[in-house]
Design a protein around this nucleic acid. Structure first.
Length: 530
DNA sequence: ATAGGGTTAG
């Protein structure tokens, strides 16, 4: 094209870029764009928006902004297409603050009148961070302008509400969409709702939705079916999941890699590793190549079932096939090694992940710290924690809680205590698990008074005790023969609708059998066991 | 004549 004379029009070049981009060959498309620029071929705002989109989709939003600079130099006025692509890139990279800043700037400086797609992109970004309130506020803002919300706008927010288990709000918005705006739900809207209902175990309503959608002549697609498969698998109902897969095949929709990954995960969860491996092998026969998620599921299955040798073998199989382990892969394997006490191997893999350019995340550090503590290497854990310095990783309450727990369990309760008291200086608020760990620690040390005052503090700190808190505290009371509060605690549990776990119950039985507790306690205990 | 947005997985 570049050598033809006369030169093809800019439109024809754009058409080329469009088709390459639609095939998601973003880097090829960018390469072509760069050639066009260096050959001095014509470039329009269409060309620029495609090039910027490609940068952004490649997680190179920075380059996208550099191209925005090119627009100004070439006197190409950036429009909604260009700014939406940039906003989308920022969303993709989780740069939510910059998303909001750019959007506000566009409006304030009147650089670009937002259109429906730009609003939808903003709403998607907010929803990605569960900022549903602001997403809804943008929807209301749209209504006040002449930019009508579309099915995409509603579906994005409905999906987010479903993911956050706010089904009532999701249905409220659905009703508003249908009855006020006369927009009918499509397969995507239904899929989100069905997914939300399934994840909450509201199977009856989910199947009602499924029926309703069929009545409206909207056929469920692969994603709809996969949502069902996934929900069944997460509840361990693999037979039901397989039934769904059979139905979908009968209907001419074929399970994809995501569907199979869910099923494999389901079998792994049940510890049925042979079956999981069978599904894995059968995927290949169907022409589906297992990806890193597939391998991670199986690796997790082998590790959780303490078959580390199989996991190691599979890990090598995976790399041998040219698949690059990611952070989740390493996290899974490291945890697997720690669980069987192979700390040296865990450490080796932790170093290897750095070498392979996989940046450890909060999960990694949590796993490593927990692994070290559980293997009685609390000193190691502490020095690693200090080595981590002041980063996002050390300002994570989950990581802190693990370390507090580990220190306490390794007989370093004074350290646990110091860490706990240092939380507020770090600006961190304890979560229920943190309190549970500390109460457990106080009880272990025989400091029942302190355990009790912390227990009482939970409610006023806006962090009410859960059933685990009660179990931990009750076990502490029993083991320390501190019976004064026991009856009151059991009564409170009953009031809150909590139940007693097996180990706490058996401890009670022991104490009653030994004559340490009165048999009259049995009646109350009976109410707490289902 | 040409460009952008929403549903599923570890």
């Amino acid at each position: 094209m570049s050598q033809r004379r006369p030169l093809p029009s800019v439109v024809q070049f754009n058409q080329l870029l469009t088709s390459v981009t639609k095939m998601k060959h973003f880097s090829t498309s960018l390469h072509l764009f760069n050639q066009m620029c260096s050959l001095g071929l014509p470039v329009s705002n269409y060309t620029m928006s495609i090039a910027i989109k490609c940068c952004c989709q490649l997680y190179r939003t920075k380059d996208g902004f550099a191209l925005l600079g090119c627009c100004f130099r070439r006197a190409i006025a950036p429009n909604q297409f260009i700014y939406s692509a940039l906003l989308d890139g920022l969303v993709l990279e989780d740069r939510i603050l910059e998303v909001e800043m750019l959007f506000k700037k566009l409006i304030k400086q009147k650089l670009c009148e937002p259109d429906v797609v730009m609003y939808n992109t903003m709403i998607k970004g907010l929803c990605k961070f569960s900022i549903n309130v602001t997403a809804l506020a943008l929807l209301r803002l749209m209504e006040q302008t002449n930019c009508k919300p579309s099915i995409v706008t509603y579906s994005t927010i409905i999906d987010s509400l479903c993911k956050d288990k706010m089904m009532d709000d999701a249905f409220k918005l659905l009703n508003e969409m249908v009855y006020d705006k006369r927009i009918l739900p499509d397969v995507i809207t239904y899929t989100s709702l069905i997914c939300g209902l399934c994840n909450m175990g509201r199977w009856d309503e989910a199947s009602k939705m499924l029926k309703e959608m069929e009545d409206e002549n909207i056929s469920p697609n692969v994603k709809t079916f996969t949502a069902l498969v996934d929900a069944f698998c997460k509840e361990g109902k693999v037979k039901e999941a397989e039934a769904v897969i059979n139905i979908m095949i009968e209907r001419g929709e074929f399970p994809d890699i995501v569907t199979y990954n869910s099923l494999i995960d389901g079998y792994c969860l049940r510890g049925e590793m042979i079956k999981a491996r069978e599904i894995f092998d059968s995927m290949t026969l169907r022409g589906l190549i297992p990806n890193v998620v597939t391998y991670n599921s199986l690796l997790n299955g082998y590790c959780k079932n303490l078959n580390i040798e199989k996991a190691v073998q599979l890990f090598h199989e995976m790399t041998g096939k040219g698949l690059k382990p990611n952070v989740v892969t390493y996290n899974t394997m490291i945890q697997g090694f720690f669980q069987v006490g192979r700390c040296v191997d865990a450490r080796k893999l932790f170093d290897e992940m750095h070498a392979q350019g996989q940046i450890p995340d909060q999960c990694t550090y949590g796993i490593v710290l927990e692994g070290l503590c559980n293997n009685r290497q609390v000193e190691e854990a502490l020095s690693l924690f200090h080595l981590m310095g002041d980063s996002r990783l050390t300002s994570d309450i989950v990581v802190y809680t693990i370390l507090i727990d580990g220190a306490g369990k390794c007989g370093k309760f004074h350290i646990a205590r110091n860490l706990f008291h240092g939380l507020s200086i770090k600006g961190l608020k304890p979560v229920v698990r943190t309190y549970n760990v500390m109460i457990g620690g106080f009880c272990r040390e025989g400091l029942l008074g302190e355990a009790k005052s912390l227990f009482l503090k939970m409610e006023e700190s806006g962090c009410p005790p859960n059933n685990i808190t009660y179990s931990v505290f009750l076990q502490g009371c029993l083991k320390n023969k501190h019976y004064d509060d026991v009856e009151m605690l059991l009564q409170e549990m009953d009031d809150r609708g909590y139940s007693l776990d097996a180990s706490t119950l058996s401890l009670f039985i022991d104490h009653i059998a030994a004559g340490l507790l009165d048999r009259s306690m049995l009646k109350l205990l009976g109410k707490l066991v289902y």
